[in-house]
Amino acid sequence: MKKSNDHGKPETGHESTNGSGQKYGMVIDLDKCTGCGTCMVACAAENNVSVRADQSDKERVITWMRLYKISNGKKFPHTEVSYFPRPCMHCDHHPPCVSVCVATATKLDFNTGIVSQIYTRCIGCRYCQAACPYGARYFNWWDSFPQDKGMDRYLTPEVSPRMRGVVEKCTFCHHRLMRAKNQAYAEDRRELEEGEYITACTEACPAQAITFGDLNKPDHKVSQLIKHPYAFRLLDRLGTEPKVYYLSSRDWVRKLADNFLPGEYEPVVNRTWAEDEWSTKPGRDEF
């Protein structure tokens, strides 16, 4: 696809990643996810995300990667809890946040598939925040790095700390792509190997639930995993083409990923291991 303007946008106006570049995507296996929250902490530490004394106001606390808790709602002792780790979906088709940005502070990069966010360009109108169906965007209500506490000492120079009044969100740890490229250049290469560029959450997940890679490369693990029968996306039917996929063998989890009408959802797995195992219950009389 020919690119014409200086923002690398293809001429056709079809706003989505082209086939020639990279298309970075993520697969999160919810069966493996333990809900520990390491991804959230790794993300915050990696990206200089601000911390305030009160982190319980979930509408204002900044969590690029956020864990949502869901439950099957069944009565005790059949209750199950599961978690949706939710980074920015990096929508591949007309990202809703991009089209509404009046300041061109956020763009979909067609060569990486990453939706960018430039803080110094953001005017803080929060239109993108309203437009994002995934709640992935956060507004800086405060300047949040008190320098007299010494907490600015762990800030990394790879990610610019944000000021009050701008919106921020997950960048797929874009600086890690830059880091990996620099490393490759130092070794006289242009191409990155699979796994050379992964996000902080991917690296941190102690259960290896997160897989990251190039969806344009069929041999990358992500490309294979998204073909898995358990694979699904959040609010898939909006047509935003998220590049973050989920895997779950639990139907109740999969069902909560979208707004289904009664009877509309088709289960993938009918019986769990325990149901199979427990199906031939011997009577208590035996003992």
């Binding site: 200086d6 690398g8 956020t106 067609f110 960018s116 110094t120 874009h174 830059m178």
Partner: peptide
């Protein structure tokens, strides 16, 4: 930066995140 990228046929490097962090 952008002009040089364009002159050298590197328009793809004018994407925001290439030069911003």
């Amino acid at each position: 930066c952008a002009r040089c990228h364009t002159e050298k046929g590197q328009e793809q490097n004018n994407a925001c995140f290439v030069c911003h962090k």
